[in-house]
Design a protein around this nucleic acid. Sequence first.
DNA 1: ACCACTATACTTACGACGTAAGAATCCGTG
DNA 2: CACGGATTCTTACGTCGTAAGTATAGTGGT
Lengths: 214, 214
Amino acid sequence: MSPKRTRGQNAGLTRQAILQAALALADREGLKALSMRRIGQELGVEAMSLYQHVAGKDALLDGLVEQLFTQAAPPLAKAASWQEGLRAYGHTLLRVLLAHPNVIPLVVGRPAITPQNLHLMEDALHMLRATGLPLERALDMLYAVTGFVVGHVAILTAGGSDRHAPGNRLRAIPDPDLRETPLLAEATRARRSSGPDPRFGFALEAMLRGFETE
Amino acid sequence: MSPKRTRGQNAGLTRQAILQAALALADREGLKALSMRRIGQELGVEAMSLYQHVAGKDALLDGLVEQLFTQAAPPLAKAASWQEGLRAYGHTLLRVLLAHPNVIPLVVGRPAITPQNLHLMEDALHMLRATGLPLERALDMLYAVTGFVVGHVAILTAGGSDRHAPGNRLRAIPDPDLRETPLLAEATRARRSSGPDPRFGFALEAMLRGFETE
DNA sequence: ACCACTATACTTACGACGTAAGAATCCGTG
DNA sequence: CACGGATTCTTACGTCGTAAGTATAGTGGT
C-alpha cells in the first residue's frame, strides 16, 4: 500500500519526469512554490535526489523553458512559406505560453540555451532559408516574432504569476481604482468584455507584412 | 570619521534612496545580489531598517520597475500625434530598459501595479485620446507597443542577467557550437557585426503603420 | 529643564531555501 | 555469491525574507 522506498531503491526519476512535475507544480502553485524540496515531494523523493538528473536549480528552470519552446517549434518546421511558418509558430507559441502563465517570467528572464533549444533554432533557420530567405534576415524575423509573442504574453499575464499565486486570472490590470484612473478603468473594462486576443493576430500580420515590403 | 550610527539615529533613508541603491546594485551585480541584507549594507544600514520604508521585497521590486517606466513616460505625454507619441515612447522605453539589462526579468515578471504606474497609464490614455483615438484602441496600442519593446529587449538581453552576473554583455546567443548548429552560428556572427538594433525601428514602424490602416 | 511620544534603527530568532559531502541501499554483471 | 556502479537519503552549512521585540534620537508641551 505505502509506496515507501528505502534508500537506494530506484524511484523512476528522469529528467523528463522531473521537468513535467515541476511544470505542473508551477502551473498549479506559482513560481515561488518551485523549490527543490517541493518538487521532490511532488515526486515522493527527497530534494537531493533530483541532482542526479539535473545539474542544479538553474538548469532545471532552463529545462522548463525548453519544454515550452519544444512544443511551439513543430509548426514552423513543416510550413510551405516563411510567412505561413512564422504565423503558425507565433500563434502556437502564444497558445503554449498562455497555457502556462506562471512560467512566463522564466521564459523571458532566461534564454534557456540548452542544446535542445539550439537545435530547434537551427532547424527553424533551415526551414526559413529553404523557402528563400537570406540567413541573416531569417534570424531577425525569428527573433522579432518570438520577441513580439513573448512581450505580448508578458503584458497580458502581468500580475498573475505569484502575487496571488494559485488561481491567477489572465488579465492586464487588476481593477484599477475608478476615481483615481477613470479612463484606465473604463478602457480595461471594455477590453475585457471582448475576446481574449483580437489584436494579437492583427499586429502579427502587420509585422509580417512589414518584413515583406522592406 | 567613522559613520557608525547608534540605534535610533536617522540614517537618511527614503523610499527613493532605497530604490536608487537597489537599482544601482542590480545593475552592478545582478538580480541575485538583491537581498535585503545586501541593499541595507549598501546604505550602511541593517536589513530590517528598510522595512520602515518599503512593505517587503516584492514591493521593493515593484518600485524598481516603476522607476524604469517613469523614465519612459514623458515622451508620450508631450507628443503631437499618437504615432509620434508611441514612437517616441517605444524608443525611449527601449533605451531605458537596455540601460538596466539586469532588471528586465523583473519588468516582465511583474506588472508593477503601483499607484504611480497606474497614473502614468492614465496620463498616456488622456494624451492618446486627445489626438483623436478611440479609448479602447488607445489601450490596445499602448499594450502592443509596450509588449513589443519588452519582448524585443527580453530576447536581446537573454542570458545576461545573472548567469555570469557582473559584466554581462548584450547579445542574443552565446557562441553556439559551430559543428552542432552551423547556420545559427553563422547567422549570429553576421548579426552581431552590424549595429545594435537595425531591426527594432523597422518593426516598430511596421506595427504603427499596421494600426493606422486597420 | 524635564518628560512623554513618535519615528527610526537595531537585535534576535525562525523556518525555508540551494546544495556540498558522505553514508546507505539496490541492482546488474561477473 | 560477491562486488561495483547507480541511485537515493541524511546531515550540515550558509543565506534568504521577515515577525517580534528592544533601544536610541528627535520633538513638542509644560
